[in-house]
Design a protein around this nucleic acid. Structure first.
Lengths: 343, 343
DNA sequence: AGGAGCGATGATATCGATATCAATCGTCGC
DNA sequence: GCGACGATTGATATCGATATCATCGCTCCT
């Protein structure tokens, strides 16, 4: 019987309460420039008193609902949840509808793109490695669907992008290890088909060179961003006659594998071996000791990507829109897997 | 210049094309019972020809946008991404707005609930262990906000719920291990503050008893659903004089830890030791060998939960609504971490 | 003084759908 | 053969916001 009903204060309620028209209220909440201070104050007061909250859905009907597609390649990607969180939060805010399409569900990524286009999306967010695929970009261009490339290491100037500076991130981590006193630092490369892999390696090498530290060939081994490839790479590195005192893996999954192998060989982490990852995925704080890694604000980046995509989708034949390029801020997260080298 | 514009076929376009009123079209797509076959056929044909897709957002303005809150406790929960996927997909479909609130961001879970209530949600989805918290349920009831408990092991008959049968899941896995020929099967318990933990243990014990197999006390050790607790538990079990030939951990994170420890002790998986997990989180297919585990259709469950919550949110003082209880289907996923015992 | 220019505001149409109520057409019972 | 009732359909209002255009009152310029 306590039948609570959503009283749902509307814009009109606020207008009535403030003694102005609904348009004035609408303008206030949309930060329109030309409103008298008096009117603005009245409206803000009424909003406060009534506890008004704009209805994103209703707003979207008028502003034009943009349907934005999101393609993703790896359903197990550990960053997926943060990515989705951010993307959906923003989508809810601006009232645009997200269509999520796993490219793995299709014989080729191109088929997934076609499906999204047919579903009528106005823009597509492309995580790596899809955003580096020229064929896909061509397909989208032909359909007039705007692409937003996400977290690619080499964003094309022609394509709106949200990215991180992989080079700088790797450099930050390398500096951290050097500052701890490490000299023999090994590196596990990422999947060469991802553009991020080479940038991270370059960041590592450049920083080592800058510090005057040598990087013997044996200290750089190939990985594929997978746990399993990390297992192999770790065995290789830890079996070396002259074992490195620190291993920097290009992502957290591989760093977790290094941790498991070290564990297996009775090598104490971090006292005998420092391990560093990249991405700050959930596994980094799951395993023990927790990984020192580079944190990317994936959720914020995803939100930004959706916002840009929605803008692209809405825009009419207005072609000369500036392609935006957003670079997100990275942070070094020092946890328990790195320390000064022994002895 | 290829200024593609979303022509966005509307309901009215379809109506005009089919020569009927828009209401008739609306009724067809909403499966209203009393439509002549002729009209239905015409409409369906037009929908097909024009490639019409209903605009969920517009629909929601009229049906009443339900705001549904989703509380979650552990931002690193590996199931989060699947959960969010399902939840948001459904939210998009029915045009309801999701408010996600991490309870960790508040001093107490109760504060998070209050925030959602103040934000005006009509219903809340509560993952464990929040859904078992009487205080929270009381708070919600006072505000007239419907709760939907998610994946709790002991759903209250008074609360709408979407759950799995933890007992049966554990039983399935235990039967699998027994069928492989294992006799000495150890068990790692979950966090006792989660209702799922005890049900899983009961499922294990009941099945062992049924098969006439003994479960010595030393073969059941406490865990907390964390990787770290799994590390400790595994060391304990694998250090036993009479080592079990299989370890069934109540979740994947702990199973992954068992794998790491086994690795460390030079115990081959699965030839010398079988490892089983529960949940089928991403880590299960990340590590190597990949874990045999119990898969829950989290995404579907989340979608169902949102759907039920939206229903709750919309319903007026209509109190005698049936509380629904949905039980999702579990599947045993056999991967590479289990095999027949050696010798 | 006349009006151009602009800041500030409101009236009204609109977005794409559904809710509600009324209208139409059989046909069935008596 | 008449009224009632049920199946089927359409007209119109509505949801909560924004877009567009009109209006109003000033100031400032010539």
């Amino acid at each position: 019987m306590s039948g609570k009903r959503r009283p749902s204060v509307t814009l009109h309620d606020v207008a009535r309460h403030a003694g102005v028209s609904s348009m004035t209220v609408s303008r206030v909440i949309n930060d329109y420039a030309f409103i008298s201070d008096a009117a603005r104050a009245k409206v803000l007061k009424s909003i406060e008193e009534l506890g008004y909250r704009p209805n994103a859905v209703a707003r979207a009907t008028r502003t034009g609902v943009a349907q934005v597609g999101v393609l993703y390649s790896n359903p197990n990607s550990s960053n997926l949840s943060a990515f989705l969180m951010g993307a959906f939060r923003k989508a809810g805010e601006i009232g645009c509808q997200l269509l999520i399409e796993p490219s793995a569900a299709h014989p080729t990524p191109a088929r997934a793109v076609v499906k999204l286009i047919e579903a009528g999306v106005g823009a597509v967010v492309l995580p790596p490695p899809l955003c580096d695929d020229a064929k896909i970009l061509k397909l989208l261009a032909a359909a007039g669907v705007g692409p937003v490339s996400f977290a690619t290491a080499k964003p094309s100037p022609d394509v709106t992008s949200v990215a991180i500076d992989d080079f700088e991130g790797a450099a930050m981590m390398t500096r951290h290890l050097i500052a701890l006193g490490h000299v023999d630092i090994a590196f596990i490369q990422g999947d060469p088909s991802h553009s991020t892999a080479s940038r991270r390696e370059e960041g590592f090498r450049a920083t080592m060179a800058e510090a005057g530290l040598a990087v013997p060939d044996a200290h750089v081994v190939q990985g594929l961003y997978t746990y399993r490839s990390g297992l192999t790479a770790a065995s290789q590195l830890l079996g070396l006659r002259r074992r490195p005192s620190a291993i920097f893996a290009s992502n957290d999954d591989m760093a977790a594998a290094v941790s498991a192998v070290a564990h297996g060989m009775g090598i104490a982490v971090p006292t005998e071996l420092s391990i560093a990852g990249f991405d700050d995925t959930p596994v980094a704080s799951t395993i023990w000791p927790q990984l020192t890694t580079i944190h990317q604000p994936i959720a914020d980046m995803a939100a930004t990507a959706v916002e840009l995509a929605a803008g692209l989708a809405r825009r009419d034949a207005d072609e000369d829109q500036a392609r935006k390029h957003v670079l997100a801020e990275l942070t070094l997260v020092v946890r328990q897997s790195t320390a000064a080298p022994a002895g």
